[in-house]
Every structure is written in structure tokens, then in C-alpha cells.
Nucleic acid binder design. Structure first.
Lengths: 208, 208
DNA sequence: TGCTTATATCACCAACAGGTGACATGCGTC
DNA sequence: GACGCATGTCACCTGTTGGTGATATAAGCA
């Protein structure tokens, strides 16, 4: 029981990192509800005044957290890991690959889901910034791989619609097990969702 | 300026209604962030102790609010207003009608959107109850009109996928104007979204 | 050694939260 | 009128929040 009084590190870099990672663990534990100056400082085992000194307040700290975390999947990840190979695929396979990758990317990022949910109820400078990064990332991905289609269908709207549906379902899966009869808690349930998306893709994309 | 001291009504029913409607206006003004005992009492211009006496606390008050509001569209509304007519439509037109009605129903219910967003970050007894009502409503609607299809496709998953996408986009439209290049702020933007859903429906549903 | 500076803690503040017990006041009944 | 009861107000409690000024202490340097 010698935990009462850790000797201070007196190292700004390390202390800063401790604070940043405290944001992460607190976010994972309690969500954004319990994310305050006092709580973060407690979690980090450090005085809250350091948040003001080093990050100029909580927003600054959260911004630092968001920057260092890969809270949003990269273009490469959304393409299934291999950009070269991806760009060579036919359109329908690209879409299927994107669907599967997107689900996986969100499922393994609890913090991203928490932030996405947060954005819906508390828009502020910070969420706007995160939002901007994401919008840009999505658009880059889309332009890169889907822009030059000549299918005659509104591919962009279709992709975004699928993205919206998957985002919603993954976020919901944190709180509920069933949505409209769809099982969100098991891999089989997600297979079913992937399947229907793929079915739509197959019937909508003109085969060459 | 004689507003300082309204004479007390001394009518439990009326006072209760005032409290309930205060929840609504506060929710519309500030969202769930500022929804506390003190704030509601202030908004209602009434002492907060009455919340405990009449509703046994804030959860009870919110429950009362949720019950009296039509926070979730009825089966009839989702069917476009006329159940008879709706049930006579071919499957693809049913789906198109549902899509349009669902968008409209959510767009005109800011409180429903707020509650839906709230459910994603603060699951509790109350949100679970609202959730249950909604799940039941959706399933009833689906069973009633889409259960007996013989199309061979996973109609349920398709409908729920569309519902998820639309829910997400409408909720997002409260905070952002553009999602993945889709315009969420204008009717034209929503026409585009409806169109792509209808296109999917046309190509996916086997025509007779 | 002694000095400066960065690092971190502590003590405190005002504002607000949820919650409760004591009290005032009006209404219906006998 | 006098009583009891429902309705409503008030004062106050404890705990927590965001925020800040004063202070201790370790590290680096002359």
C-alpha cells in the first residue's frame, strides 16, 4: 500500500502523455459524460492545474488526444490494407471490400464510436474539428477510388448511404443488442448485414 | 413588469402539466446537456421540490413527458397516412412510401431526434424504455406490411439498413450541413437521398 | 555552493448540482 | 370559524465543478 504518494516525475513530456492517455481511458470507461477537468486529473493522478498550464484547458487537452490517436481509419485501412490491389478491383468488389473494412475499422475503435456519438449531441469547436478531418478523409477516399465511374448511378449518394447505415448500427451496438430484429451483438448478425449490402451492390452496379 | 411573483396556482394537474412541458421546451432549447432538476424547475417557474413530490424525481418526470408526447411516428404515419391504400401497393411502392414518410416523420420531430441521439451516449432505464417502444413499433410495422414477401431477398435487413441510414442522416442534419458530400440542409439534398434509395429499391425488388 | 527556472502541489474560490426538512398558504369539510 | 390536508415556497445541506493564486521542490547552471 505505498500508492498514496508517488513521487512527482518533474518531466513535462511524460506528465503530458499521462494526461493524454488519461483522457483515453476515462473516455473508454465513462464516455463523455464524465469527462471533466477534475475527473481527468484524478484519473491521471496529477493536479488539474497542469491541464491549464500544459494544454490551456480541457479542449486543448482533448485536441491533443485526438491528434495522437488514430481515431479515424486511414484511406489504406478503408481500402482493405492494400491500395495497389484495391485500385485494381472492379467497382462492385471495391464496394464490398469497403463495406467489410469500414465495419471492422469502426468495431475496433470504441473511442471513435464514443466521439461520433458525442458529436451528435454536443457540437462545439472540438467536435467540429474532428468532423472536418473525417469529412475530408471520406471525400479523399471517395474521389480516389470511386470518382471516375461511368455507371450513371449516383454512386456517391449510395456509398454515403451505406456508410451512414453502418455508422449508425455500429454505434448502436454499444448500447443495444437488437435493432429492428437485426442482431448487432454477434458476428453472424454482422454477416447478415454485410450480405444484404453486398446483395444491393450486386444488383445496383452494372456488371461489365 | 409584474412578472416577478405569479400567484401560485395550487392545482396539481396544471402544475404537473407545466413541469412536463418545461421538459419539452428545455429539451428543444438546450438538448439533454442542460436537463437537470434545477433547470427544469427554473424553466417551469416552479419549485424543484415538486418534481420529487409529483414525479418522484427527474426520471419519473421525463417518463411522463415521453408518454404524453408522440415522440415516435405511428404505424399509420409510417405508411403515409392511409393504411388501406398502403396495404394495396406493390412492394416497391410500399418501400418508397415508407422511405419518404420516415424522413418526414423524423424531420418534424426535433425532440425525437434529440432523444435518439441521447440514447447513444447515455443508456439508462429511461432510454431503454423508449428503445423498447420503438423496437416494438418498428417490428409491428414490418410484420404487418413486409412479412409475407416471397422475393427471396432479406427484406428485413434491407428495410432496417435504410432505416438506420435515414436515422443517422436526419440526426446529423441537426449539427452539420454536409455529410460525405451530401447536402443535409436543403430539400434538394434530401431529394437526392430519397432518389438513391428509390433507385436501390427499383433494382433490388423483383418486378412482377 | 547559491541562484534561477521549470515542475508540480495545495488551498481556496464562486457557481451550481441534486436533494431534503421546515414552514407558509390556500381550499374544502365539519 | 376551526381544523386537516394538499399545494407550494424557502432555506439549507453536501458534493462537485471549473478555475486560480500562492507555495514547495527538484533540476540545471554559474
Amino acid at each position: 500500500m505505498t500508492e498514496k504518494k508517488q513521487l512527482p516525475l518533474r518531466d513535462r513530456q511524460i506528465t503530458s502523455r499521462i494526461l493524454i492517455s488519461a483522457v483515453g481511458s476515462l473516455l473508454a470507461k465513462k464516455g463523455f459524460k464524465g469527462l471533466g477537468v477534475n475527473a481527468v486529473a484524478r484519473e491521471a493522478g496529477v493536479d488539474k492545474v497542469l491541464i491549464y498550464r500544459y494544454f490551456d484547458g480541457l479542449p486543448g487537452l482533448i485536441a491533443a488526444f485526438a491528434q495522437q490517436e488514430d481515431f479515424w481509419p486511414s484511406t489504406r485501412e478503408m481500402a482493405g490494407g492494400d491500395l495497389e490491389q484495391f485500385s485494381g478491383l472492379p467497382l462492385d468488389e471495391k464496394l464490398s471490400m469497403f463495406t467489410a473494412s469500414f465495419i471492422q475499422a469502426l468495431k475496433k475503435r470504441p473511442l471513435t464510436r464514443a466521439i461520433m456519438a458525442w458529436e451528435m449531441i454536443e457540437p462545439n469547436e472540438l467536435t467540429e474539428e474532428l468532423e472536418r478531418v473525417r469529412e475530408e478523409s471520406i471525400m479523399t477516399f471517395f474521389q480516389m477510388f470511386f470518382a471516375k465511374d461511368k455507371t450513371g448511378i449516383d454512386l456517391q449518394a449510395l456509398v454515403m448511404l451505406v456508410g451512414a447505415a453502418l455508422s449508425y448500427l455500429v454505434i448502436r451496438s454499444d448500447n443495444i443488442d437488437v435493432y429492428g430484429g437485426l442482431d448487432l451483438a454477434t458476428d453472424q448478425g454482422w454477416d447478415r448485414i454485410s450480405s444484404v449490402v453486398n446483395m444491393v451492390i450486386q444488383r445496383v452496379i452494372p456488371q461489365e
